[in-house]
């Protein structure tokens, strides 16, 4: 890019076709050469990532697409079964259960997560000097390993004497059996997930601080109140950050695994489990690594990939109406 920009005469009108002069031809060649050199340099700089992408992402994806058409148990040769795994998915009641659990989790958790993040970011934006301290405090839980969060969930949300129910008890509320009552397992996990809003808070705080002060001053001069300023200035200006958080958390929600697995299927509970916590990726993991149905698990992975693609595409279409990018006309 740089060398192209420095090439003398770039962008000047030049004759084309059979009547092109020799200097123009020479210039064209030199431009082509520079372009090729640029492409080579770009590829060279990109090559570590490209190599990583091909080896660790593209190739496994292609191979898993192939495995999804096979019966494969890791040790014996994959046996081609066509679309059998996909057909089996359609008749597997646990797929529907896991999809339902995952959809519920995502639909409730993502809006809550965004609202809490935004509320905390707005508070921090007005916190003055103390903002730095609280920013660190909010971010700290994000550093906790998800497995530890899963185990912590069982302790904090223990229906008998967990901290959450103890606190609820102070207000005369008899807390539910968060960890065993199927009706309360997902809400419990959703509340627990809000503990790690720190990273989103920081992104939203940065976006809030990037809103030009002049816009607020103009709104004030025009007589806009808090609500009008928030909806007409703040939200549009931070909409790209909000959109990013919604997209990323939706994908994370659809892939939720660690905390629920630890609490209900892993070290937290080796034998007791709860269907209410059977999220799609947990079922995928069971099929792949407990039952060694790698072909079926690969088909499940592609099913999830499709769901995420569709959901993200819908979000992108909706975003065209709701997200404001400053550079756009």
């Amino acid at each position: 890019m740089t060398s192209t920009a420095l090439t003398p005469g770039l962008g000047s009108p030049e004759p084309t076709g059979p009547h092109r002069s020799a200097p123009a031809e020479e210039r064209r060649r030199s431009q082509q050469k520079a372009r090729r050199r640029n492409v080579r340099s770009a590829l060279l700089f990109l090559s570590p990532w490209l190599l990583g992408f091909v080896v660790f992402t593209a190739w496994p994806m292609i191979y898993s697409a192939y495995l999804s058409l096979t019966d494969y148990d890791v040790i014996n040769d994959p046996e081609f079964v066509g679309l059998e795994n996909y057909a089996e998915m359609a008749s597997d009641p646990k797929i529907l259960l896991a999809l339902g659990n995952t959809a519920f989790f995502t639909l409730v958790q993502v809006p809550l997560y965004v609202i809490v993040s935004l509320a905390l970011a707005l508070l921090l934006d007005r916190a003055g000097r103390a903002a730095g301290f609280f920013r660190t405090v909010f971010f700290l839980p994000k550093m906790t390993p998800p497995v530890a969060v899963g185990v912590l969930f069982l302790l904090l949300f223990n229906g008998q004497n967990g901290l959450v129910n103890t606190v609820l008890g102070w207000f005369g509320i008899a807390g539910p059996a968060w960890t065993t009552d199927p009706a309360w397992v997902k809400p419990g996990l959703i509340f627990m997930s809000l503990w790690t809003v720190g990273s989103s808070v920081i992104i939203l705080l940065a976006a809030l601080r990037n809103v030009p002060e002049t816009l607020y001053e103009s709104a004030k001069l025009d007589g806009a109140g808090f609500w009008r300023t928030s909806t007409s200035v703040t939200l549009p200006m931070i909409s790209p950050a909000l959109f990013f958080i919604i997209i990323v958390n939706t994908i994370a929600g659809l892939q939720t695994f660690d905390e629920a697995y630890t609490a209900f299927f892993g070290s937290g509970n080796t034998t007791y489990s709860n269907d209410a916590a059977l999220f799609y990726v947990i079922y995928l993991f069971q099929q792949a690594f407990e039952f060694l149905h790698m072909g079926y698990a690969s088909a499940m992975a592609w099913g999830l990939f499709l769901v995420i693609m569709i959901v993200t595409a819908i979000q992108l279409i909706v975003s065209r109406r709701l997200v404001y990018y400053e550079g756009e006309k």
Partner: peptide
């Protein structure tokens, strides 16, 4: 054995969870 064990546990858990 893994599928058998899982089927058994799922059954017991669904009864324990009142389902």
């Amino acid at each position: 054995d893994a599928e058998f064990e899982q089927a058994m546990q799922d059954a017991v858990n669904s009864v324990l969870n009142g389902e």
